[in-house]
């Protein structure tokens, strides 16, 4: 049998199965740590203020990306904002159809620079428009873990 002859019996070849074990941990950094602690412990969304640029960043960060100033002034920015942009997802990550479409939105908190990528709730896709006012709905305190998912979703207000 020549090496180029087709293999006709499946038991003459086999795939080689393997698995690469990879595990990662991502910590949020100094500003991220405090930002998520405030969400977890106090259900508050916090920003940091750059006085020279007159901007409040949400999510809070440690440095101003425009002037490189260190940002040390923290403010509670409230839970209300506007839909900056959105998309309606009808497929799961594996390509299967979602029974109830998910509305993914970038929400810009009022008076701040930046935004939070999240979901919209208590609303149907046909009612969503760019610019509609929304507010954060938090999970109960006992269920909050210090994650962006401690906010259940944003709903129209």
């Amino acid at each position: 049998m020549s090496p180029l002859d087709k293999i006709t019996l499946v038991n003459q070849v086999q795939p080689w199965y393997g698995e690469i074990p990879v595990y990662g941990q991502y910590t949020f950094g100094v500003a991220g740590e405090r930002f998520f602690r405030e969400i977890k412990d106090n259900a508050r969304i916090m920003g940091t203020v750059c006085n020279s640029c007159n901007l409040t960043y949400v999510p809070a960060r440690l440095f101003c990306e425009r002037c490189y100033n260190k940002l040390e002034s923290w403010v509670d920015v409230g839970t209300k904002g506007r839909v900056h942009t959105y998309t309606v997802a009808c497929l799961n990550l594996d390509g299967s159809r979602i029974s109830e479409p998910i509305i993914l939105a970038m929400v810009q908190i009022d008076g701040t620079c930046g935004g939070l990528v999240h979901q919209l709730g208590e609303v149907t896709p046909d009612k969503v428009k760019i610019g509609i006012p929304v507010e954060a709905v938090f999970k109960a305190k006992a269920q909050r873990t210090g994650s962006i998912l401690d906010i259940k979703y944003f709903r129209p207000c």
Binding site: E19, V22, Y23, Q25, T27, G32
Partner: peptide, 10 residues
């Protein structure tokens, strides 16, 4: 500290 974990299926 808060952190997220990541264990991809490879």
């Amino acid at each position: 500290v808060l952190f997220t974990e990541w264990r991809p299926n490879l």
